[in-house]
Amino acid sequence: MKVLLLNSSIQHFGRYSGYDRMFDFLKKDIELIYNDKQPGWVRRKLINRKLWPTYNQSKYGPYHFYNKYVEEYLAFNKALRRNPDVIHFSFAEDSLGYFSDVRSKLPGTIKLVGSIHQPPSWWKMTNKNIQTLKCLDALIVLSREAKKYFDSYLPDKVHFLPHGVNTEFFVPASSKESSSTFNCLFVGNWLRDFAFFVETVHRLNATYSNIVFNIVYPHQPEPTHPLFQLIRYDNINWHRNISDEQLLHLYQQADVLFLPLLNSTGNNALLEAASCCLPVITTQCGGVNDYFPDELIYAIKKNDVQEAMDIFGYLLRPENKGHIAAKSEQLGKLLREKLDFKVVADKLHSLYTSL
């Protein structure tokens, strides 16, 4: 089986993180054909003469930029030459537009599959054109909430296939560095509840003197960003442009991942931390419960800072250390069994062959 993949690598993801890493674990009977990225300037000028007059971002919605339109055009022509069995848009939110107009020009034997990562609330807020998805033969969503929402638009075509994690790389440390401080880790940018995080940090610093915060954030916070308020504290360590190994070390040496969210489907940081058997505090929202049972994480209600403070108080008490570790190990075991990339890739393989 041949699969033409239109992937969207995200700059701050490394070799082991992100949705596109799942394709590395597909069975060997799948021949992956990667799409061409941007052409050279001479060919680009020729393509622009044809494509630019037809490009209409208002039709395809925000985040579908012209460079994606060009990549789709290149993929369409490659599909005509290579005749794949499946064309998979790994981030259909921003890479599917042109194909919705030219679907009828493809051989009927070629099936179109799209994966979307944003929660229904994002689609409503951005007024993204869902009609572009109707050219797909299968739509993959990363939460049951999203499946329920899109079922009404694409009946019998929507499949909940969970996000996964590389459990061979994201593993617990063989030994942990001894420290008198409590190491709290925050990772990422998209759909994080920064205001809640910062308010909780204020409260924690006013209550405890032994907490250190490690923040992995890909940008320099602007003065208007909530994170900028943390400039007043000396117990904040900032990390960006770090290697995969440095990120792994941060997970392994942390005492907790504190990741308040505005919404979620599948979340890389939650999966990676849990795979490292790190206790997780996060928000009850979106698809969190599709991945993590309530009894194995520390779930907080939106905007409930006191609940977060109570959980930190529990985690900081030495007599709870054994129970906390056992709970985290059970969560790590669950991920290895059900959400390892190999397991998720097998489910994707089954979907391909069913079309």
Rank of each mutant, 00 (worst) to 15 (best):
T224E: 15
L185P: 06
I236C: 14
L259K: 04
S180E: 15
S264I: 04
K176Q: 12
L259S: 12
H249E: 15
Q229H: 09
N268Y: 07
L227I: 10
F194V: 10
F182S: 10
P260K: 08
T200A: 14
S209M: 08
K176W: 03
I211T: 03
I231C: 11
Y233M: 07
P221K: 02
I236A: 12
V171P: 04
T224A: 11
N241P: 05
R203P: 07
H202Y: 14
G188F: 09
Y208Q: 02
I231L: 10
P218T: 01
T265M: 11
F213A: 02
R192G: 05
N241I: 02
A195L: 12
A254L: 07
L230V: 00
F182Y: 15
N235A: 05
V212H: 14
S174F: 11
A195M: 11
Y251V: 01
R232Y: 08
F228G: 03
E199M: 11
R240I: 00
L185E: 03
N268A: 13
N189L: 13
I215Q: 08
T200S: 14
F258N: 12
I236V: 11
D244K: 03
E177N: 10
F228C: 06
F197T: 04
Q246D: 13
L191A: 12
F258I: 05
F186K: 01
L204T: 02
E199G: 09
Q253V: 00
I236F: 00
H219Q: 14
V256T: 09
I215V: 13
N267S: 12
N267L: 04
C184M: 11
P223F: 09
N268E: 02
D193G: 07
V171D: 03
Y208A: 00
Q220C: 06
N268Q: 11
P226F: 12
P221S: 09
L262H: 12
S178Q: 14
N263H: 11
G266T: 12
L227P: 02
S209K: 15
H219D: 12
E272D: 01
D244L: 07
V216R: 05
A273M: 05
S180C: 06
A206W: 00
L247D: 01
W190M: 09
R203G: 08
W238T: 09
G266S: 04
L247G: 00
H225Y: 13
S264W: 00
G188K: 03
T207E: 14
Y233C: 04
L204G: 10
F194A: 08
N189V: 04
F213H: 07
A195D: 15
E245F: 12
H202C: 05
N205V: 09
R240M: 10
F258C: 14
T224V: 14
L262N: 13
P218K: 11
T265S: 14
Y208G: 06
Q246K: 15
Y233E: 07
Q252C: 07
T200E: 06
V187T: 01
P260V: 03
W190N: 13
A254C: 07
E245S: 12
